[in-house]
Design a protein around this nucleic acid. Structure first.
Length: 409
RNA sequence: CGGGGCGUAGUAUAUCGGUAGUAUGCAUGCUUUGGGAGCAUGAGGGCCGAGUUCGAUUCUCGGCGCCCCGACCA
């Protein structure tokens, strides 16, 4: 992509109404635009990152049998009344509106109810199970206070997956499978070594649910970490019996701040019961379908990555979710740079070509701010030998290699 | 929802009861060209409403919006 054609611009100064590092940098670099408190638009660069993250998640969910769908954001009042979660007293993050034709609708803050009810149309026998479905959805939550940039907005992108199985055993098996899939997602997104499976309160159905907590001071949660065992316990369930069950002593735990980038829940059969989702077993006896729910905050993950890897010059993207692999910077060597750009583009390599007619300093500063993993500098210095400089944004390391070698690598 | 802070140009800020200044960004020209260059010229601004006043961007009240701490976050 030609940088000249990118309609966004970088800024030197962060807007005064943002304090969160992720929002400051993403706005300065032109990835997002703030529409109102807790609501951000994703611009070309930001959307590319979102799509990269989604693709990683998609691949991992498909690998464990997930099927992708997308549900409507509009939700029926009657449905949520069946599970007693329509009332604002029960769920305080509802956005609701009225239909002109009469009646009320809600904007989805979660999709357990509608998707489970929908499954009534497709699940009636043990032969129809298991079913694993997921979607990438824009969730809307009427938070009393939005904060932390894109890490806790009123509107955000979430992957939510639901599992429908015949038994607790089958459920447990899939539940454990998702733990692995989730860790692979976070590893691929660059957060592997600082993301921990965390025990959290499980609600009415199981003792624990599990969260995936990524260590960062920008997070909202406090967890107690056992680095040796690679597990953590959310502050909310740091109780003697929990410690005993997990076989850890409080003294061995480290108190750290973390951001919840994912969570997985077991619902048992009660919600299915409420919504009438049952299946017949081999003997023709009806049972409620066992439900599990699995979330990954896509936009929160993006914000977390920015918080963790950014330095004083700007964002640093892990290669796996960067909008481009290369930032090609032309310093008065347009002919050569053009040729290199075309060669890369022909090979389908993702490259942002800074073809703007600006000074070197500005190009370097912008490239550092945007945070693409490799900056490829084409200048008069390499004219005679036909070389380019390849600078690693994360390490700052620079290599001079021949144009030919670079293009063919 | 409790507490605190804030609203001045695209952005960041200053000043002031009486012609609103600076930086940056933007436009044009010249000079410059490896870490956000220099000079010149130009366009661009007081959240909304009411009140006080000869006069309000400034003071008072109300509204709207934004930020922070706490609470909340199946």
């Amino acid at each position: 992509m030609l940088q000249n054609q990118l309609f966004t611009k970088t800024r030197k100064e962060a807007p005064k109404d943002e304090v969160a590092k992720n929002a400051q940098l993403l706005i300065r670099a032109g990835f997002i635009h703030k529409e109102m408190a807790g609501a951000y638009s994703f611009l070309p660069l930001g959307l590319m990152v979102i799509e990269k993250i989604k693709q990683i998640v998609r691949e991992e969910m498909n690998k464990i049998g997930g099927q992708e769908i997308i549900m409507t954001s509009l939700q029926r009042k009657e449905l949520w009344e069946k599970t007693d979660r329509w009332d604002d007293e029960k769920v305080d993050v509802w956005f609701k509106s009225a239909l002109k034709s009469g009646g009320e609708v809600g904007f989805g803050w979660s999709h357990e109810e509608p998707i489970t009810e929908m499954m009534n149309s497709f699940i009636s026998s043990y032969r129809d199970l298991p079913v694993y479905v997921y979607q990438f959805q824009t969730k809307m939550r009427n938070e009393l206070r939005a904060k932390s940039g894109i890490m806790r907005g009123r509107e955000f992108v979430m992957k939510d997956m639901y599992s429908y199985t015949t038994s607790e055993e089958a459920h447990k098996k899939f539940y454990d499978l998702t733990k692995g899939a989730y860790m692979r997602v976070f590893e691929r997104a660059g957060l592997g070594d600082r993301t921990f499976l965390t025990f959290a309160s499980g609600g009415a159905f199981t003792k624990f649910s599990h969260e995936f907590q990524t260590l960062t001071d920008a997070g909202e949660d406090v967890i107690y970490l056992h680095r040796g065992k690679k597990i953590a316990i959310n502050k909310e369930v740091l109780l003697p019996e929990v410690l005993e069950e997990l076989g850890v002593k409080e003294a061995e735990l480290e108190e750290v701040k973390a951001a919840e980038v994912g969570n997985i829940f077991s619902f048992g059969g009660s919600k299915s019961e409420q919504l009438g989702l049952r299946f017949n077993d081999e003997k023709g006896e009806a049972h409620p379908v066992i439900l599990g729910s699995y979330g990954i905050g896509i936009t929160r993950l993006m914000g977390t990555v920015v918080e963790i890897f950014a330095d004083d010059k700007g964002i640093v993207w892990p290669e796996s979710i960067a909008p481009f692999k290369y930032h090609l910077i032309d310093l008065n060597s347009k002919e050569r740079a053009n040729k290199i750009y075309k060669a890369l583009a022909d090979k389908g390599i993702e490259v942002l070509f800074d073809d703007r007619d600006t000074r070197a300093g500005e190009k370097f500063a912008d490239a550092d701010l945007i945070g693409i993993p490799y900056q490829v500098i084409v200048s008069e210095r390499g004219e005679a030998e036909k070389t380019v400089e390849v600078k690693n944004r994360m390490t700052g390391e620079t290599k001079i290699i021949s144009e030919e070698e670079f293009v063919s690598s």
